[in-house]
Simulated scan of single mutants.
Amino acid sequence: MLSALEVITTVVVGLMVGVEFSVAFVMNRIFNALPDDAHQQARSHGGRMLGALMPFWYIGSLVLAAIWAVAGWHDHGTRLVLAAAALLIVSVIMSVLLLVPINNRGKAWTPEARPADWKEQMNRWDRYHYARVAVIIAAFTLLVTALT
Results as ranks from 00 to 15, higher is better:
residue 1 M to E: 09
residue 6 E to F: 12
residue 8 I to E: 03
residue 9 T to C: 15
residue 12 V to Y: 15
residue 15 L to N: 07
residue 18 G to W: 07
residue 19 V to D: 01
residue 21 F to P: 11
residue 22 S to Y: 12
residue 23 V to I: 10
residue 25 F to V: 14
residue 26 V to I: 15
residue 27 M to Q: 15
residue 30 I to L: 10
residue 33 A to P: 04
residue 33 A to E: 11
residue 34 L to A: 09
residue 35 P to K: 06
residue 39 H to T: 06
residue 40 Q to I: 10
residue 44 S to M: 10
residue 45 H to K: 12
residue 47 G to C: 08
residue 48 R to Q: 11
residue 49 M to S: 14
residue 51 G to Y: 13
residue 53 L to D: 02
residue 55 P to E: 00
residue 57 W to F: 07
residue 57 W to Q: 03
residue 58 Y to I: 15
residue 59 I to Q: 04
residue 61 S to R: 08
residue 62 L to A: 09
residue 62 L to K: 12
residue 65 A to L: 04
residue 66 A to I: 12
residue 70 V to M: 05
residue 71 A to P: 08
residue 74 H to L: 13
residue 75 D to S: 09
residue 76 H to L: 12
residue 77 G to M: 07
residue 77 G to W: 06
residue 78 T to S: 01
residue 81 V to A: 05
residue 83 A to W: 03
residue 83 A to Q: 07
residue 84 A to T: 04
residue 85 A to F: 06
residue 86 A to E: 11
residue 86 A to P: 07
residue 87 L to P: 02
residue 88 L to M: 04
residue 89 I to Q: 07
residue 90 V to A: 14
residue 91 S to P: 01
residue 91 S to E: 04
residue 93 I to F: 05
residue 94 M to C: 13
residue 95 S to V: 04
residue 96 V to N: 03
residue 97 L to E: 12
residue 98 L to V: 13
residue 100 V to A: 08
residue 103 N to C: 14
residue 104 N to H: 11
residue 104 N to Y: 12
residue 105 R to F: 11
residue 107 K to C: 11
residue 107 K to D: 06
residue 107 K to S: 11
residue 108 A to C: 14
residue 112 E to N: 08
residue 112 E to F: 07
residue 113 A to I: 06
residue 116 A to F: 07
residue 116 A to V: 05
residue 118 W to F: 01
residue 123 N to P: 04
residue 123 N to E: 08
residue 124 R to Q: 12
residue 125 W to D: 01
residue 128 Y to N: 07
residue 130 Y to W: 14
residue 131 A to R: 12
residue 131 A to E: 11
residue 133 V to N: 00
residue 133 V to H: 04
residue 137 I to E: 06
residue 137 I to G: 01
residue 140 F to L: 05
residue 140 F to A: 06
residue 141 T to N: 01
residue 142 L to G: 08
residue 143 L to S: 06
residue 143 L to H: 02
residue 147 L to F: 09
